[in-house]
Design a protein around this nucleic acid. Structure first.
Lengths: 117, 117
DNA sequence: TTGACATATGAGCAATCCTTCATATGTTCA
DNA sequence: TGAACATATGAAGGATTGCTCATATGTCAA
């Protein structure tokens, strides 16, 4: 933990700061949450997630919808899998992806509402 | 628009692809949405946003809560302002920031639910 | 078994991000 | 007015990202 630059009075409202600090999520939880939002911070991945909000799709069709190469899409899918944004099932040589849970489409919908307001 | 690599059969389920394409958000909207999620994709900014979910704070206190320098926090706040994640009011030489609307705390809550499940 | 194909993955590169340092702006108070 | 201070901002550098290209894996069909 490096020493941080601070205002001379340190904090303006010490009570407010301590109240906030008491309720903050833990470090690792926040890091994980940041990584989760990072997954939604790319237009290509957003197109993929938006497409999957309508139902499962194979990698090939995801690539067509997202306007990206199957390779790029596959790289993205691995990240989305690791962050539990998507799940997939294998059927022969095909892989069908879907959103992991309803939180993801919630995030998408709320985000769209925000940018459209 | 560069030519994209495609599976030989082009798409597996043409109907599904066309159905999805018909309902996708527009390019600029998705770009804007991606930028919005990008704002939530940094632990420091997340701590700031989480803190502001509890009420308004000045830059100095935000820096204390986020464990970052006032300079770094100010840079982040400019971005958050530009993406309409936060609003602020000036009072003398102080600046008090708050979340722009309830969508932001919704995103935070839903995100936390997702990572905690 | 062999060739074609859907998907996955490693390396590498340009672009972007997050922070620090230095400095600027505007306000308060002595 | 001038010093102190809260906040803002530009430049710069190391870290991270998103893509492409090359290649690997596993499946299907002839």
């Amino acid at each position: 933990m490096t020493r941080i630059e601070l205002c001379d009075i340190e904090v303006v409202d010490r009570d407010a700061v301590e109240r906030v600090q008491a309720t903050q999520a833990h470090e690792d939880e926040l890091g994980y949450l940041a990584d989760t939002f990072q997954m939604l911070a790319s237009p290509t991945r957003l197109r993929m997630v938006e497409a999957l909000a309508g139902g499962e799709l194979c990698v090939c069709d995801l690539a067509a919808v997202a306007g990206a190469s199957p390779s790029a899409v596959s790289h993205h899918l691995r990240q989305l899998r690791q962050m539990r944004i998507v799940r997939f099932r294998k059927e022969g040589r095909m892989a069908y992806y879907r959103l992991d849970d309803e939180h993801i489409s919630d995030l998408l919908r709320t985000g769209l509402e925000h940018v459209r307001e």
